[in-house]
Write a protein that binds this DNA or RNA. Structure first.
Lengths: 348, 348
DNA sequence: TTGTACGCGTTATCAA
DNA sequence: TTGATAACGCGTACAA
């Protein structure tokens, strides 16, 4: 039947009112008499008109209601990180009042045709742990006047950033170990860069991942000579491998292992058990993130609880502010040190 | 300085060409002489024009390059399910060639102003495990002529669905246990409905979650009397609790436990160990999904490997087909039964 | 409370 | 290879 979709003009004509009146009935921005309202509704129903076309509305308004979230990697990898997911929850919540939703975008997307920062109808963009190669597209976006916020990454001057006190927080965890009396401490680190193969750090590495570098620095602030083994990813399995490597030499066994993430810490705990030792009596373990590690009970990691949801929310609020014409400041969040049951004084 | 953003018309004027020519320079849809191309580029650069406004382009084209993905819950909950993440990967890959990206939407979002199926500028929508309450907005979307695909859910006639052979697959796993000689088998089930509190199933439950119902039916096809304990979520921790409940009565201990997800199975394995028993010598355990459970090594679950990425990809391809005017058929995927090291004949 | 008039920025079509 | 024209469908001053 229909040769063409009904528009608001058709509805107005059918209802015998002007297009603007019909428009107002749907947007509710101006009072309309009940009678007119009803006639417009009826007309819409009879024409199968289901409301304003979002595309047209977005052109007219200059807003699409879409915030792009840019990740460096496959979604699969990204969402394996519980912290990122929590952050997304916070972000979602913060942009919802704007009438906005999140569009998933990938940095360096190899797929032809995939939408990008420049081709997607974005109101704003949030970059997560962005790499240096993002700088170019970032410039393009800013040239277009689209607000940009960066979470855990350095985007240069003029871009609000949401950060964490990684270095100081990690230092505090190690200070806790120091206070307990530990002298031989090892570090189970996150990857040094994308594509990193697990292995010991010898101090010559070039760090691409700021989080790893900063947390390592924090640990070394307290234990300058602590050996560090960097995993290939943040997972329990990788933590297990790191833990095995660290515990391999029975003569130089540390009495405490500081992991740079809770998932790694969970793996380290397993490695300790596997070696026939006990946590925390023989070996203390600390984590970082403060997430709930599924399957780790009855252990409760001594860890740094980072405000993951808050980070996302803050990014969303920064976006909202910029969209409102205000300018948003960078923000640095603080981790809370939480003592669980995985740390204790070293064995005699 | 700038009172207004430059448009393609400004660029055209500056370059001394027509707007359509300038447009074509950016879209590349028609050959343009190098000289003209260069002049347009220069004009754009001098005016700070960074390319066509996606909003206007999308109005004109009738495409926004955005596919909505609708979930029932918080992202946090949703993405705790590794299968969903894999599915998203497949979906992302499949819609990328369309030049489309994924917009995260939530069913029953209470936040005022949050974008919805009807207010977002979508080219198509994918519903994941959709609930009944979605039906209404679903109708609205379909009335607008927006293609819709449903993954693991029943959206009624005319909507392509991507499904799994849950019942038959689960039956095959239990048949494997039967072949090994097991006679006392228990089931660790997924939640029965949203908000379900863990507990034994007595046959009077009303199932809202189809997956649970279907896999249970498959298990009962082989062991009609198998007792079933339904967890409150799909997680290792919940699997542990379910496993404890199932193993609590030492006199009626099953020799095999069929879990409805790999995460549950991982928890069940822990429960078995905790009870001082061995897997698979004393108790066999089967899972469902075929994901890699972080931290479960050295166990490899005997499980049903579902093509999670493929499901997402198929949904994306269905969307692509519908967008191309073809009609997409529903699709039912088949799980592959994989024997790991968590099943063996029952103890004597 | 309703209507008029215009512009939002682009691109498809067709003719030159 | 380029240009003129006409939508695309809506929102919103402003006037009545």
């Amino acid at each position: 039947m229909s040769t063409r979709r009904a528009t608001i003009a058709d509805v107005a004509r059918e209802a015998g009112v002007s297009p603007s009146t019909a428009s107002v009935v749907f947007s509710g921005k101006t009072p309309v008499s009940d009678a007119t309202k009803q006639r417009v509704r009826d007309a819409a129903a009879s024409l199968g008109y289901t409301g304003p076309d979002p595309r047209a509305a977005s052109l007219r308004r200059g807003r699409s209601g879409i915030v792009g979230v840019v990740f460096e990697e496959h979604l699969g990898r990204t969402f394996q990180d519980p912290v990122k997911i929590l952050m997304m929850d916070g972000l979602t919540a913060a942009v919802a009042p704007l009438g906005a939703g999140l569009l998933l975008l990938r940095d360096r997307d190899e797929t032809a045709g995939a939408p990008t920062l420049t081709t997607a109808p974005l109101d704003a963009a949030v970059l997560v742990g962005c790499s240096g190669m993002l700088r170019e597209s970032l410039d393009a976006v800013r040239a277009r006047g689209i607000p940009v916020v960066v979470i855990e990454g350095d985007a240069g001057e003029g871009v609000p950033q949401i950060d964490l006190d990684n270095r100081d927080a990690q230092r505090r965890a190690l200070a806790h170990l120091r206070a307990l009396g530990h002298e031989r401490v090892a570090i189970a680190a996150l990857p040094v860069r994308a594509g990193w193969e697990r292995g010991w750090l010898d101090g010559t590495e070039r760090f691409t991942i700021d989080v790893t570098r900063d947390r390592l620095a924090g640990a070394r602030d307290e234990y300058p000579d602590a050996p560090a083994f960097a995993a290939a990813a943040s997972s329990i399995d990788e933590g297990l491998l790191a833990g095995r490597a660290i515990l391999a030499d029975a003569d130089h066994r540390p009495t405490a292992i500081a992991a740079q993430s809770d998932l790694l810490a969970a793996g380290v705990v397993r490695a300790v058990e596997e070696a026939g030792l006990r946590v925390p009596e023989d070996v203390s373990v600390t984590g970082f993130d403060g997430i709930v590690v599924d399957g780790l009970a009855p252990y409760e990691l001594t860890t740094l609880v980072q405000p993951a949801v808050e980070k996302g929310r803050a990014a969303g609020e920064a976006v909202a502010a910029m969209l409102a014409g205000e300018d948003a400041a960078s923000l640095r969040f603080t981790c809370v040190f939480r003592v669980g049951n995985t740390t204790a004084p070293p064995p005699d």
